[in-house]
Design a protein around this nucleic acid. Structure first.
Ligand code: ATP
Length: 647
DNA sequence: CAACCTCTAATTTTT
DNA sequence: TTAGAGGTTG
């Protein structure tokens, strides 16, 4: 700890703001502050440590645990995770009728629910007049995160639907009703209900009594809703410390804005402000490059940042002719670095969009390098994995109709219609799972269900009965051991998936994922914790290739998920105009945010930074040339070029 | 009414 | 390169 850092760590009381550039030890200040508080005999569960992404949260938590053995009991994690924990404890205080077994729905399920609502409320021919399910999801989450009204969101983001407000209102209301009926919350609900809990209920008083010290990392990314939560807690806590860097604000798409940080001093009384001006992470050569780049942003405030590290190599820009070559180049460089003694897990490949990982994954597999991928196709959103989690969800929250639909229509002989008949029949019952298990011949014939369908449904009943029997000492279905639960599920699913994915290689690949999920579940002792963590805490990611398990994996990650992390060697890839910066962002006038994203990406590097670009992106996508982020700083002598000279 | 086939449109970022 | 929509068959 240097002196600047130490004074921040030892901050006594009231609100504190730490604004500082990358690698200056902001996260370190927070983690050491937690350790210091603990050493002062502050109760761990009175400390709340918050951040935005799952990965950054894990990193922060593990740093705290290294510093103090009492760290494990600190209330720490993403906003959503912390909200979930308190909601679990106090659901019954909510004004809407949720029960403790509520489950969280992800984006895909939100879309499905909107689809159901639209089908039931809007006539076929009117459906083209209103937003698509996907857009509804965006509208609703934007509404929550910016705390704007539905009308304002539509006016601002989807002005061409403004004349359909009545229909839009009824769909949004229907969506909310169905969520409550199904005991489901979406991600926005977690935060919104948490705020309600804090603000309007007696449970809120208890929570506020519990929490004395609040620490928020990456504060430049808070949105209006999260800001309200923090403000609500700040009224009663002893200290509040927020840290951030306006140049790293990259979540405007979910309402995040650095304004909340820049206004912090005006919004809170007697704010203590701390500055950290020494960069411990990156070589001066790397800082020169990012500083030259961020200069182009007019909105950024200037920060002093002095590198404490010795001079390093100039960052290297490499031009390749296509994306396969790009991947081959990166992988061969990685092997060189590894041979020179840098461990694989100190090397990362970063990119703008999730699909950008594809060629790198292939190249890793071909060369037998293990990799840990964050943001390819998301593991838990792959359809075969969702089939498994659907079964778990039904046992945790039997009212969750989306998962019933999913499981039922997966059975042979059962399609959309039969599935919805059954769901209709059981959903209004107090326990739909028991209702399902007691369906018999008479029920099936009264619903006129085909005999093939009946026999599959009976086999599902048998599975559910066996699963329920795993709850031997009747401590509740959610308490069943996940590993045992899943191994029965897998037996049931295997033949179904074999049919669904007739291509043998494809099946094998997907089934490997499923097995991986099962072994992942072993670290959990109950189904509800498993489910919640999937959505608010962890990502499964490591893909092992057959060779040397002793090697640590390299990291493939989107820039967003790399936030707050660092590696000795970083490759920032796909620097094509239209990809990074992304054309859709450019269309929305977000160039400066894209440049901040580039800034975040490059400042992850400690020692070596590579920027790569391939002339031809994809056959059907015309190449728009090299990213302007490289072109802009061409004449500044902040990098060296390898490969074809295309300028 | 489910299953199978064919064509098309879409591929930003996270919880 | 792939999911899902839409149309046809059985
Ligand atoms: N006083 C110090 N002595 C030694 N190492 C330090 C010191 N302060 C910070 N570091 C190291 O510098 C690196 C960056 O620190 P940290 O991740 O806390 O920075 P940050 O400001 O949160 O960065 P970012 O804004 O990029 O997330 C870490 O490896 C950390 O251990």
């Amino acid at each position: 700890m240097n002196e600047e850092q130490l004074t921040a760590v030892l901050h006594e009381q009231g609100p504190a703001l730490v604004v500082a550039g990358p690698g200056s030890g902001k996260t370190r200040v927070l983690t050491h502050r937690v350790a210091w508080l603990l050493s002062q005999d502050v109760r761990p569960d009175s400390i709340m440590l918050v951040t935005f992404t799952k990965k950054a949260a894990q990193e922060m938590i593990s740093r705290v645990q290294q510093l103090s053995y009492r760290g494990a009991a600190v209330v720490a994690g993403t906003f959503h995770h912390i909200a979930y924990i308190f909601l679990r404890r106090y659901v019954s205080s909510l004004p809407d009728l949720y029960s403790k077994s509520f489950t969280i729905i992800d984006q895909g399920d939100q879309e499905k629910l909107f689809k159901l609502v639209i089908q039931s409320l809007i006539d076929q021919e009117d459906r083209r007049l209103i937003p698509k399910p996907k857009d509804f999801v965006r509208i609703v989450s934007y509404m929550h995160s910016t705390q704007m009204s539905l009308l304002d969101v539509v006016r601002e983001e989807f002005p061409n639907y403004i004349r359909q407000m009545d229909r839009i209102n009824s769909v949004v209301n229907g969506y909310k009703e169905r969520k409550i009926q199904g005991n489901m919350m979406d991600f926005s609900d977690l935060l919104t209900y948490f705020l309600i809990l804090l603000r309007d209920t007696s449970a809120g008083i208890e929570i506020k009594n519990q929490i004395d010290h609040v620490l928020v990392d990456e504060y430049q990314d808070v949105n209006a809703l999260q800001e309200k939560i923090i403000r609500e807690l700040s009224g009663t806590c002893k200290s509040l410390m927020v840290v951030g860097d306006d140049a790293q604000s990259i979540y405007s798409f979910r309402g995040g804005s650095a304004e909340f940080m820049l206004d912090f001093e005006d919004q809170y009384q007697s704010v203590t402000k701390y500055f950290l001006t020494k960069n411990y992470r990156s070589r001066p050569s790397i800082l020169r490059l990012v500083n030259a780049s961020i200069e182009y942003n007019e909105e950024q405030i200037e920060k002093q940042l002095e590198s404490l590290r010795p001079e390093g190599d100039l960052p290297i820009v490499t031009v390749t002719s296509n994306s396969r070559e790009q991947a081959a180049y990166v992988i061969s460089k990685i092997q060189e670095y590894n041979e020179s003694g840098i461990p694989f897990d100190e090397i990362a490949i970063l990119y703008r969009a999730r699909w950008n990982s594809l060629e790198f994954e292939k190249a890793c597999v071909n060369s037998g390098i293990r990799y840990d991928i964050r943001g390819g196709i998301r593991f838990f959103e792959r359809s075969h994995i969702k089939d498994v989690t659907a079964l778990v969800t039904i046992f945790v929250n039997p009212r969750e109709i989306l998962q019933w639909n999913r499981i039922l229509s997966m059975l042979s002989g059962v399609g959309e219609i039969t599935a919805s008949k059954i769901v209709q029949k059981i959903q209004s019952k107090s326990n739909p799972l028991t209702a399902f298990l007691t369906l018999g011949r008479n029920d099936f014939s009264s619903m006129s269900i085909s005999s093939i369908a009946i026999s599959s449904i009976i086999s599902l009943q048998r599975l559910f009965t066996e699963l329920a029997e795993l709850d031997e000492n009747h401590s509740g279905l959610t308490q069943i051991n996940p590993m045992r639960f899943l191994s029965l599920c897998l037996e049931f699913l295997e033949p179904i998936h074999q049919m669904k994915f007739p291509d043998e290689d494809e099946f094998r690949e997907r089934w490997n994922d499923v097995r991986e999920f099962m072994s992942f579940s072993d670290r959990y002792d109950s189904l509800d914790n498993l489910l919640a963590d999937i959505l608010t805490m962890v990502n499964i990611s490591t893909r092992t290739s057959k060779l040397d398990d002793k090697d640590r994996p390299i990291v493939l990650s989107t820039v967003h998920q790399a936030k707050g992390l660092e590696w000795q060697v970083v490759f920032v890839t796909w620097l094509n105009q239209g990809v990074f910066p992304h054309s859709m962002s450019l269309a929305e006038d977000n160039l400066e945010e894209e440049r901040r994203l580039f800034y975040v990406a490059c400042t992850r590097a400690k020692d070596f930074l590579h920027l790569t670009f391939s002339e031809y992106a994809r056959s059907w996508q015309n190449s728009e040339g090299v990213s302007q982020f490289i072109e802009e700083i061409m004449d500044e002598n902040v990098f060296q070029i390898f490969g074809n000279d295309i300028w």
